Simulated scan of single mutants.
Amino acid sequence: MASHKTIFITGGASGIGRAVAIKFGSQGWFVGLADVNESGMKETAALLPTGKSSIHKLDVRDRAAWDAALEGCAEASGGRIDVVFNNAGIPLGGNLIENNAAEIERCLDINLKGVLFGAQAAHPWLKASAPGSCLLNTASAAGIYGTPGAAVYSATKFGVRAITECLDAEWAPDEIKVCDLMPGFIDTPLIDMNPNQQSNEHIRGRVLEAGLEITPVSEVAEAAWKAVHGDALHHRVGKTAHRIAFAARWMPGRLRKMTRTSLKPLGGH
């Protein structure tokens, strides 16, 4: 067995996945990168210590591909996987009636089915390296309170939150830690995408127009490190996430009114 620890990261080609890879790599961990974007993964690997990473092309919607990627990572790392970071995801905004069937299904498949498949595939590896192993999922502030103009995306992130809470109990006898990250709007390439196929305005513009902050991706990497080494179940990242959680708990009526009258930051047009 390898003496170092290993983290396997989906969505490792850019954004949160890349930032978390750099953080763990800087601490001496072996980093397995998984994504559909091979060139992006190579760019991430170039930012990591030489010989301390591996690249695995993975579509998280493919259950069999998960097993192959994790086996490849374990082979490259010396037989050990301590953390699986279920991070791959895509945005989808706009009013629900604006979203077409194809983009709804793609968002559900990647953001939700991909996390379920990842958890299934990760379990034997994490059980073997327990105690101290961890399944870390990327949820969202949109999984704290539903985000107008992002019904499908919010549904997937509420789902990720539920998966985290369920597996926290299911996997406790195996001594596997399960937790998630709940970031607000993070400065990654995702917010420079159009929210849906009918929109020609980037998400970033809507966020700034709404007066919301965009959190540096380095803060998510630090939160991931703390999550893996801490005891909390949910880890909010950024002011927006903390404000939504506070309002949802202490002033739900006001939050409901705000969401019904405010500008929709992920809205379509």
Rank of each mutant, 00 (worst) to 15 (best):
S53E: 01
A45N: 01
S54T: 05
A74E: 09
A65D: 05
D62L: 08
L47I: 07
A69Q: 06
A88D: 08
G89M: 03
I90Y: 03
D59P: 09
R80M: 14
W66E: 03
V84S: 09
G40N: 03
V84G: 06
A46R: 12
R61S: 15
G79R: 07
V60A: 04
S39H: 10
H56W: 13
L70M: 14
L48K: 05
L92R: 11
V83I: 12
N86K: 10
G40V: 00
D67M: 14
G79A: 11
A74T: 13
E43S: 10
A76N: 08
V83K: 06
G93W: 00
V60G: 05
A45Q: 12
L48H: 00
I81S: 02
A64H: 12
A45K: 05
R80D: 10
G40I: 00
S77W: 07
K57H: 14
L58M: 06
S54W: 14
P49W: 04
V83E: 08
D82M: 02
G40P: 06
V84R: 04
T50I: 13
L58E: 00
G51N: 06
I90Q: 06
A68L: 11
K42Q: 14
L48V: 06
N86C: 15
A45E: 05
K42P: 01
L70P: 04
L92Y: 00
E38F: 07
T50C: 08
G72M: 10
T50S: 15
N87R: 12
G89Y: 07
G79S: 06
V84I: 12
R61G: 03
T50Y: 08
A76F: 11
G72T: 09
A68F: 04
G93P: 03
G78C: 12
I55M: 14
G93Q: 04
G51L: 11
S77P: 03
H56T: 01
S54N: 08
T44A: 07
V84F: 13
R63I: 06
A68W: 05
R80F: 01
S39Q: 14
A76L: 05
A64S: 15
D59F: 09
A45Y: 00
F85H: 11
S77C: 02
P49M: 02
A68N: 15
A65N: 08
K52G: 06
L47S: 15
A64D: 14
A46M: 12
A46Q: 14
L47R: 12
G72A: 09
K52D: 12
T44F: 03
S54E: 02
K57R: 12
